[in-house]
Nucleic acid binder design. Structure first.
Lengths: 215, 215
DNA sequence: ACCAATGTGTAGTGTAGACTACACTATCTT
DNA sequence: AAGATAGTGTAGTCTACACTACACATTGGT
């Protein structure tokens, strides 16, 4: 008798891992392109190859597959934001680097797709919301807050609620742009446009409106 | 032969308007509570009273009903942000007032629900995205940009891209809070918490990090 | 070589739900 | 009163799709 495995547990054999990844890859592509609700499990199996039974053995149901996919991608996307040697930079440069990296990622189709699907499904799958936030945006915010905290320790910045401050900086960075891209009202910004915006954001963040250079 | 009326056109009789509103009310309640995909047209008719045929006569199909509902609500929500006499206030007070009004609205269940549903459906209904943005967030951004523009004219503020600046201020205001509420990771903030946040935002916006008072 | 775990393939089953057809009724205008 | 316009109610069609059942094939460890 084979073990029922109602929930996901990592497969032991190499072949198992391969099949599981193939299913996740297919799910990712289809869910992000057409939306969770519009893709059937049969579509996914059709693309991944293999069989429906395998899908259910691995993930239990459609939601399980979706969650596994979202977790994998959020970690991959947001986990690669570099933090190395940031303390040696002037704050302008540090924020600039983080800002550009982040905006490039966040404006990407894949990232926007995950955001849309998570927002759409979160009311029905609350665990999904946590999964995404903690593995994604929340993690970035904490990393930035940590950076601020270190600067406060070194008396380079006035003491304040660094987590909130990080949230404000990030919000300012995304601003309207995020929504506009989520709703697909404009085509993706060029690298140059991103760099300009980040520069202006950093300026505003550091010196406020009054300190803005006239242009 | 009755006119086919494939698309929505305002009903002429009082009874017509009544029925149409009842359908919109029911749609609003059900869509925002359970989500567009989880609500059937029969559910809506069941709650509104009346008949399925009427629904199709008015709105053509499920999407048409949804769009009519979103348009009505975005205008109602974002249209009531007051702008009166804002030019006579100090900028601190003006931003404070706008910020509080906006945050209160945006943190409300109804507003969050519309946001979720629009984001979820926008890939399939691009007109919906425009409808929502222009009637909602986009309109607020333009109003704020206008205010900034007037200040620039009066030499109270350095010249700059006022629309972008407005977007940044608004982004900063919502920041993490919006996502956290959209994903329902926290309960709604109190009025007092909102006021505090807005104060800090206005401070940061006007003077930058360096100008923050230590606390 | 064996046996347990794991993967495959096909063919269901049951249900939900968007949209239509149609015959009938109420109301409004002139 | 008549004809147009709008609303009602029911019943039905057609399709999509999550999930299951079951018999069989393929592995890999010991």
């Amino acid at each position: 008798m084979s073990s029922p495995r109602p929930q996901d547990s990592p497969p032991t054999t190499a072949r198992g891992r391969q099949r599981r990844d193939a299913l996740l890859d297919a799910a990712q592509q289809l869910f992000l392109e057409h939306g969770y609700g519009q893709v059937s499990v049969n579509d996914i199996v059709g693309r991944a190859g293999g069989s429906l039974s395998t899908l259910y053995r691995h993930f239990g149901n459609k939601e399980g597959l979706f969650q596994a996919m979202v977790e994998r991608r959020s970690h991959h996307i947001y986990g690669t934001l570099t933090d190395e040697g940031v303390d040696e930079l002037a704050i302008e440069a540090a924020l600039q680097r983080l800002g550009i990296d982040l905006l490039v990622k966040v404006m990407g189709e894949e990232t926007l797709g995950i955001y849309r699907e998570v927002v759409a499904e979160s009311p029905r799958q609350p665990q999904l919301a946590r999964l995404f936030f903690d593995g994604g945006p929340g993690r970035v915010r904490l990393a930035l807050a940590d950076y601020f905290e270190r600067r406060v320790q070194r008396r380079l910045m006035p003491a304040c609620d660094t987590v909130e401050l990080a949230g404000m900086f990030l919000g300012m960075l995304l601003g309207e742009w995020h929504l506009i891209r989520v709703l697909q009202l404009k085509s993706p910004p060029s690298r140059a446009a991103i760099e300009e915006r980040v520069t202006r954001c950093v300026d505003l963040f550091l010196h406020g409106v009054q300190g803005l250079p006239s242009r």
